[in-house]
Each structure stands twice: as structure tokens, then as C-alpha cells.
Design a binder for these strands. Structure first.
Length: 510
RNA sequence: GACCUGAUAGCUCAGCUGGUAGAGCAUUACACUUUUAAUGUAAGGGUCCUGGGUUCGAAUCCCAGUCAGGUCACCA
């Protein structure tokens, strides 16, 4: 029997084996290491710290994250969802454990580990060092931890030592990351607040939050490679949505005046610092509006979020860059932006001349790419990075905007804008194309342009055309990349830092 | 997809031109009733990512692979 046990523990570390032994000893002592009963708390750690009252009795629960045993007394730190507080235990101050004071203290000293989840009851006092502390007279083990927690230490100057910093481990074991790295939790709390504030704003305006299918038989609304799956009882392939745009427009056709959705989209493409296979976009469509209105609206929304979240007067500082959200956001036609930053006036230029311009600008031009794509590339390579303060880049070439209305005055351009902040595209919006005949034509052109020789019937959403044929009011729509917005407002430069569980390859078996 | 960098104890890392594997924290034992990066003494803890090769001898050199990060490419 002993032999078996040894074999089963072969892959465990010394520290894990010790903890399992402690677990068994606790059981032998009649202590359930995983009790079911509700543990009654009277307050939270942050509340204790906010209104500290000497001698007040409190009961709290949380994870033991530090332990300093000094013989007949011990100090620890306990962490709940609101913060951390010091606890103090002494040999003579357990009042009601069955096994007597000394035994209780010894159990604490010998069988409780850093990482265990415990409940403590005691009274508040301040130590010589003026540290708010709970003098514990009863503790309850609520959950035994069987793996050692990384010990992140901080000195008096708040300098961090031995941080749990290996990115792979942090992402694979986000639960550990969240326990030991305070700033990580803050990023995610901020993410939640950003989304909540956006929702508040949109609700206040009277727009309706909706849900549309994530499983679609035609992946529309964007050009991207979808994830494919299969529905067994329907016997058909289904695609994870690459966008929800076409469904929201159907709802506008159905009579809603304004609809929005925080949509998880999926794209089966490359991954890097700003692309995860699944990501979140806020899409909003408002009837009887155009892209000028949407710019005003977007500016108002962004300022709202900024003021709610950042709460410093004007400026978000990032690597010596100052981003000012308070001034009006300038509106710059993309062709003007190109003229400003490259000196070339490419208005009305033909494709051959555009290629010459690319050459002079040292932009790799690829024969396959279209005229519109060339313009886009010039902008991305030479202009985008200059727009640090929020800026609307407007009036994109028509060809790259198949769902957008033709510009009411400007030839070959569309009524479209992107919001650029800190050199990054945060939002994309337009006056929605509502001419069904034009829309069908544009879909067809798009398929011709794409190099994938795809079956037209597969990628043209005929039901969407049918819906347009019933008549869609003039509509303005916008998509805001939530992950990138969160990155901006939390100063993170990797999308993985704003997703709880970024996509990873499965962990290799050891 | 290409290139570069990395993988060593639970965590963070050192390990030189190849010679039986190290530190700090964590763990265990002892001491310590106001510590807070607690302290002191002692001890234990390793598939050096995996698989080949070179060599008398490989954590170290070579090749292939796995995973991660970075740069670029692709990407509405």
C-alpha cells in the first residue's frame, strides 16, 4: 500500500506531497479541509480599513497569502476580493476551539499553509508599527490549497521582487496571476467598468441591447476567414460569426430605431499583440442618422468613457505621449492625411501612378492589391502613427467599403470614418448602404476582388439583400473594438493582457 | 508562415572556453508573543523542455521537435 502511494506521488513536487500529508493529518484530527457550511462574514477588508474601529469584532474570509511565525505568536496576511489585511494570532487567544487553545494554535502553525482559504474572527487593533490588524481568536479552514503559491515580495519602497512574471504561466494559470499580481486584477476590473459605462451611455440614449446569432450559416459583415463547425441534426456547416453587422441591420429594418450588441467575434487568422482569434466589438446602429451624426455621437461616447474611467482631467500619458480627450476630435479626410504626411496629392490618381508613389515612399507594393488597398496601405504605413489624440479619418475609398454608402458629394469615396487614437484604429463607422441593388452589386464586386475562388452563393447573404429590399431607413452604424479600447485605457500593449484567457496552444503533456 | 530570443528547484534567476547542479524567496526542523522583503541555525528539494548526435565526459556544442515571447509577413 505504501508502495502504491509513493508511485502515485512520483510526479508531485516535494511541497505538494507535504501539503497532501497535511491534508490527511487535518482529516485525522476531524477537521474537514473542504467544509460545506456557509461561512458568515461581517465585513470586507476594505471596509475594515475605511472605518477602522479599535476593538471591534469582525469576521472575514479570504486567502492566506503570507505567514510569519514567531514562536508563540504569528502574523499573516489575508486577502479577500477587496484587499489585504494583517492578522495576528497568539497561542493563548483562541477562545472556543474544541481542542484547546494550544492545540488550535499548533494546528494553525503546522497544518495551515500560504494559499489556504480561511475564515478568521477577531478584534481590530493596531500594532506598534501602526498596522491595522485583526487579533484572531478563532480561525476556520475553508479550503486547503495543495500547491505552493508564488511568493511575490515587496519592500518598503514598493519595489517588487520575484514577481510571478513568466507570461506563459501567467496566461495559462490566470487564476494564480490574479491572486498574486494586483495590477492584473485592476486591468480586468477596469475592463468591466468600461463596458458597463458604455452600456449605461447607450441605454440612457434609449438604444436596445440585443443578441444575434454567433453561429451563422453565412459568415457576413466582414471579410475574414471564419471558423467552421458542423451542426449534426441540421446536417450543415455553420460558421462562428466574424461580425454581427448584417443581423443588426435586419433589426433596424424590423423597426428598432437603435440597437447595439457587445459581440464576441471569431476570426481564423494570425495572432499577435493585437489579434486574438476571439475578440469583442461593440456594434451600434441608429436609424435616420448619418456618419456625421455618428462622429458627434462617438466623440460624446468616448469622452463619457474617458471621464468615467480615467478621471484625471485631460490627459492619458503613455510613454511620453500625451493623449488629450477633451478637445474636439479633428476630422481629416484620408486623402488630406496622406498629403500632409507624404507630400503626395493622390486625389484622382490612377493605379499606375499610385504604385509609383508607393515606390517613392518605400512601401512594398504587391501587384495583387487593388487601388483602394494601395491607398489604405499608404495611410497605415505613413500616416496612422501620427494621430495620437483622438482623430476621425474620414471619406475612405469606396472600393474598400462594400457596406458603406457612396459619398453624397465626393466621387469614388464613401461616407465612412475611422477613429484613430494613439496611432491605432479604435472604431470604424459609416452611413450604411441601404440600396439593395447597389448592395448586391458590391457583394459581387467584392467576390471578384477577393482572391479566394469562393462560391458566390456561399458568401452572398441573399436573405440580407431580401431584407434590404423591404426597405432599411438611412442608418448610421459603428463598430468599436473593445479589447483595443481597453488596452488604450489601461496602457497595455498586448491584447493578452486584457483578455482573461488569451488563446494558447494546449499545454504539452509532461 | 519566416527570422531572432528563451525554457535549469514551487516562484524569480545564475551557471564562463564541455568535467557529477547553484542562489534568494518558498518548503521542513529547531529557536523566537508586535512582525511586515521578519530574523537566526540546520536540512530537504532537479526528467537542466523532449528526442537524437558529437565526445572518455553535455545544462553547456550540433541537429530535429515542443511551448512561449519578440520582429516581420498575412489579416477590413
Amino acid at each position: 500500500m505504501k508502495k502504491n502511494k509513493d508511485i502515485s506521488m512520483l510526479h508531485l513536487s516535494e511541497q505538494q506531497i507535504i501539503r497532501i500529508k497535511k491534508l490527511n493529518q487535518l482529516k485525522l484530527l476531524g477537521i474537514n479541509p473542504y467544509p460545506s457550511e456557509e461561512y458568515c462574514i461581517t465585513t470586507t477588508i476594505v471596509n475594515i480599513q475605511k472605518k477602522f474601529t479599535e476593538k471591534e469584532t469582525v469576521s472575514i474570509a479570504g486567502r492566506l497569502i503570507r505567514l510569519r511565525i514567531l514562536g508563540k505568536a504569528s502574523f499573516g496576511e489575508i486577502q479577500d476580493h477587496t484587499g489585504r489585511i494583517q492578522i495576528y494570532l497568539t497561542k493563548n487567544h483562541f477562545d472556543s476551539e474544541k481542542m484547546g487553545k494550544e492545540d488550535s494554535y499548533n494546528i494553525f502553525k503546522k497544518l495551515i499553509d500560504i494559499g489556504d482559504i480561511i475564515g478568521v474572527k477577531g478584534f481590530l487593533f493596531k500594532t506598534k508599527m501602526n498596522e491595522m490588524t485583526i487579533h484572531v481568536h478563532r480561525f476556520t479552514l475553508l479550503s486547503k490549497s495543495l500547491r505552493p503559491l508564488p511568493q511575490v515580495k515587496m519592500d518598503q519602497n514598493k519595489k517588487i521582487y520575484d514577481a510571478f512574471s513568466n507570461t506563459e504561466q501567467r496566461y495559462r494559470m490566470r487564476y494564480v496571476d490574479l491572486i498574486v499580481n494586483d495590477h492584473v486584477k485592476e486591468i480586468f476590473l477596469k475592463r468591466t467598468r468600461i463596458i458597463r459605462e458604455m452600456r449605461n451611455f447607450l441605454d440612457k440614449k434609449g438604444y436596445i441591447e440585443v443578441d444575434t446569432p454567433a453561429l451563422q450559416s453565412i459568415p457576413g459583415g466582414a471579410v475574414a476567414r471564419p471558423f467552421v463547425t458542423y451542426h449534426n441534426s441540421l446536417g450543415i456547416p455553420l460558421y462562428l460569426r466574424i461580425a454581427n453587422e448584417l443581423y443588426l441591420k435586419r433589426l433596424i429594418i424590423g423597426g428598432f430605431h437603435g440597437v447595439y450588441e457587445f459581440s464576441k467575434n471569431f476570426r481564423n487568422e494570425g495572432m499577435d499583440k493585437i489579434h486574438n482569434p476571439e475578440f469583442t466589438v461593440l456594434e451600434l446602429y441608429v436609424a435616420y442618422k448619418d456618419y456625421y451624426w455618428m462622429m458627434k455621437f462617438t466623440e460624446e461616447l468616448m469622452k463619457w468613457i474617458y471621464n468615467k474611467i480615467v478621471q484625471k482631467k485631460d490627459i492619458l500619458i503613455e510613454e511620453n505621449k500625451k493623449i488629450n480627450f477633451q478637445n474636439p476630435f479633428p476630422r481629416i479626410p484620408i486623402l488630406n492625411a496622406i498629403k500632409t504626411h507624404t507630400g503626395f496629392d493622390i486625389k484622382d490618381m490612377e493605379e499606375d501612378d499610385l504604385r509609383k508613389v508607393c515606390k517613392q515612399l518605400n512601401i512594398e507594393e504587391n501587384l495583387k492589391i487593388s487601388k483602394a488597398k494601395l491607398i489604405e496601405t499608404i495611410f497605415e504605413e505613413k500616416c496612422e502613427k501620427h494621430y495620437i489624440n483622438p482623430t476621425f479619418i474620414i471619406d475612405y475609398p469606396l472600393e474598400m467599403s462594400p457596406l458603406t454608402k457612396k459619398h453624397r458629394h465626393k466621387k469614388n469615396l464613401s461616407e465612412r470614418f475611422e477613429l484613430i487614437i494613439n496611432g491605432q484604429e479604435i472604431a470604424n463607422a459609416y452611413s450604411e448602404l441601404n440600396d439593395p441593388i447597389d448592395q448586391l452589386e458590391r457583394f459581387r464586386e467584392q467576390i471578384k476582388l477577393s482572391e479566394k475562388k469562393t462560391d458566390e452563393s456561399m458568401f452572398i447573404d441573399k436573405d440580407f439583400i431580401r431584407a434590404l429590399e423591404f426597405g432599411m431607413p438611412p442608418t448610421a452604424g459603428i463598430g468599436i473594438g473593445i479589447d483595443r479600447l481597453v488596452m488604450l485605457l489601461t496602457k497595455q500593449n498586448s491584447i493578452q493582457e486584457v483578455l482573461f484567457f488569451p488563446q494558447m496552444r494546449p499545454e504539452p503533456e509532461k
